[in-house]
Amino acid sequence: MKKRERIEIIHDILNSIKEKNPPVRQTHILYKSNLSHQMLVEYLTELIKKGFIIEKEDKKGKKHYELTEKAYKFLNDYKIIKGFIESYGLD
């Protein structure tokens, strides 16, 4: 089986949030993205830092995630981005 590229993982994470209708819990993203907990936390931290998702806490202190405009733009342009990255081996 072909190893998933970084760009594909990011797509799967963002798509899992989009499909569930945000705000979405971490357990849902974990289930949909098929990553280890540690890996998911690393990706989520990076995506928050880069402005793709927003982390919020509910009254019980549980974390939820929402997509930003930037994430929607990424999902719209995903095929072009993937094609470009694959062409030049930029992953």
Partner: peptide
């Protein structure tokens, strides 16, 4: 310009350098 557009969507530093 095309790389800039992709960088704008991904924030990937590799694409910026490219």
């Amino acid at each position: 310009l095309f790389s800039l557009k992709i960088y704008d969507s991904t924030n990937d530093v590799k694409i910026k350098y490219f």
